[in-house]
């Protein structure tokens, strides 16, 4: 695509009307088709060396997450230690991509991760509901970045999006992106609250047009979190967005991915939908807390030849 195309996209954010025209002009998602395609890709058999490769890649893609009201500095430090060295019994096991915490825990995590190469992500903008005034969200973001976060996970205002106030959502993402400075911005769409795949596609494009570096499925705080078809729709969006503008955007499914089998299904969908360019921790992440232990157990199984158990890995 050309520079004129890029600038054409730049104009879209000017008004609600332009955004609506563009977003509603996107082709609709074939719901049955998307679900069948995801289910079909989920049946691929990945074994032995390919499986070992996929497991290591998945470990390197994990955003090790703790987002509980009960988080303490001690728990966050323990999580950071695990992020740096997931399997103390095997130095070959790669480190995870990032640790994801609440803003108040960012200073603790920054200290614990210094020099490790593990990124530090913080949720911001009144996570998980997003129901706060814009200046509070901006301040939330600035505080997290100032404390040392190099990735920000923001939530969009689903209320505004669902009622069609697209420009409001757009402006908010632009403002938060500005507040991020050099930090990467992940935009959480909370697909479980968007109701349709068409909305997921629209929200994905909206977030990408507004400057998000990553689009992320969910907060993990609502009953329906990441699903394979939703991720498929988002991966199609980032693929099409790169084709249209030349800018590559990452995807992060979060919540509900607990087993190695699930993770490998996602990797297959990534490869078959967006392409091998996205099979990299810079462009695809898993937001998860329990997934890592299952990956480590499967890794140990491949290494030792017998099944491992949860007793041999730390809980957090």
């Amino acid at each position: 695509m050309t520079a004129t195309a890029t600038s054409a996209f730049a104009d879209i954010g000017r008004s609600d009307a332009a955004l609506r025209t563009f977003l509603h002009g996107l082709p609709g998602v074939d719901q049955v088709g998307a679900e069948q395609r995801a289910a079909m890709l989920g049946t691929r058999s990945i074994k032995t060396t390919a499986k070992a490769w996929a497991i290591d890649l998945a470990i390197r893609m994990v955003d090790l997450t703790t987002l509980e009201g009960a988080d303490t500095p001690g728990k966050v430090r323990a999580l950071c230690a695990k992020a740096r060295r997931p399997d103390p019994a095997d130095p070959e096991a790669p480190a995870v991509a990032a640790v994801c915490v609440y803003p108040s825990m960012v200073p603790v995590a920054a200290e614990a991760l210094r020099g490790s190469g593990v990124h530090l992500a913080s949720v911001a903008t009144a996570f998980p509901s997003g129901q706060a005034p814009l200046d509070v969200k901006i301040a939330d973001t600035r505080a997290a970045v100032a404390a040392g976060a190099d990735e920000i996970d923001m939530v969009i205002s689903r209320g505004a999006f669902l009622s069609g106030r697209y420009a409001e959502v757009y402006d908010e993402i632009v403002a938060v992106k500005e507040a991020c400075g050099d930090a990467h911005l992940k935009v959480i769409l909370e697909t479980g609250e968007l109701a349709t795949y068409d909305n997921v596609r629209r929200a994905s494009w909206l977030a990408m047009l507004a400057g998000g570096d990553f689009i992320k499925t969910s907060t993990g705080k609502v009953p329906v979190a990441a699903t394979l078809p939703v991720t498929l729709v988002m991966l199609e969006a980032v693929r099409d967005f790169r084709a249209a503008t030349g800018r590559q955007v990452g995807v992060k499914p979060a919540g509900g991915i607990r087993t190695t089998k699930d993770a490998i299904k996602y990797l297959v969908v990534v490869n078959e939908t967006a392409g091998a360019d996205w099979l990299d921790p810079d462009w695809f992440r898993f937001g998860a807390s329990t997934l890592l232990n299952d990956l480590l157990m499967q890794r140990t199984k491949l290494r030792t030849g017998h099944y491992s158990g949860p007793d041999y890995f730390t809980v957090d």
């Binding site: 099944y307 491992s308 158990g309 007793d311």
Partner: peptide, 9 residues
């Protein structure tokens, strides 16, 4: 053998 070697048994 798989049952006997299983670390969670």
């Amino acid at each position: 053998p798989w049952l006997a070697a299983h670390m969670d048994v």
